[in-house]
Write a protein that binds this DNA or RNA. Sequence first.
DNA 1: TTTAAATAGTTCGTGTTCTAATTAAATTAT
DNA 2: ATAATTTAATTAGAACACGAACTATTTAAA
Lengths: 158, 158
Amino acid sequence: MQKDEELLVALRRVIRAIGLHSKQLNKDVGLTGPQLLVMRNVSIKPGIMVRQIAESITLSPATVTSIIDRLEIKGLVNRIRSIEDKRRVQVFLTEQGKSILADAPLPLQEHFINRFSKLKEWEQSQLVATMQRIGSMMDAEGIDASPVLEVGSLSEKV
Amino acid sequence: MQKDEELLVALRRVIRAIGLHSKQLNKDVGLTGPQLLVMRNVSIKPGIMVRQIAESITLSPATVTSIIDRLEIKGLVNRIRSIEDKRRVQVFLTEQGKSILADAPLPLQEHFINRFSKLKEWEQSQLVATMQRIGSMMDAEGIDASPVLEVGSLSEKV
DNA sequence: TTTAAATAGTTCGTGTTCTAATTAAATTAT
DNA sequence: ATAATTTAATTAGAACACGAACTATTTAAA
């Protein structure tokens, strides 16, 4: 097998692991990974626009709409149409949404974070550098992919 | 930004890049990335079982079934139930499937492959090894995915 | 001012992906 | 030999993800 194929297989495995974790999350907490990411965004910036959420977690607006649909049905978020600009829709957490989010785990496997954090500094750097390198080779740099993983901290996002 | 967050941002970008490439592929050639992967597997090993395809591209059998459904509708593959073991379904390329696959691009961006192929051997290995390492760190401990050895050549798998 | 263009969000159609449940067949155990 | 188990594939149902087309609104241009 060629190296690039091996790389693709390895990438697929990682993608799958993330997806499986999302499914497991849904069983455990009732929220999938993407749903959790959306809620964390809303938590950081109540009244955030759909477009802003989409950009911040690197998804299309259409996808975010469907995720918010499900969150709204569950009673975890509210949509409110802006008065200044009636095209805009602002999203807020409900009380129930807040309390559920407070107990929810991270959107990525604790398992992984734990293991990663136990690596030596230079090993971590090496893993990061490699991923970034692959990303840049795929020309994925232009895509704003900052997921809201730092939401645990209280720092306000742009 | 913490190292694990950086890693995950980079990962998200790569995942998204692969997804977008798959969509583009579908527009250009009429085949998505996963469909292409399935066809390449069938091409290498005509009569391959659904289960084998699933393992080789790291998908559940259910997913492969649905991908083969679409390929069959397009007339690119055939299903034939095995005679020795009637539980098995063997998959073959049709003539049309062969000719389409012959002209189809690789499942990763050409762009990426070109750049990747220009790296030195040891650099390629290092990128692959790192991805495999991340994959194994994310694996739910159930799967003993000995990364390097298990990813044997497709043509050698039986 | 009336028209044209841009923006925000949604809807629609297609495709991917999973688990759980189902059907069918082969294997093992009693 | 019959029953229980395992294996192979499919189906059903849910969530996700995208682009394209649509509605409504705002802004810019003529």
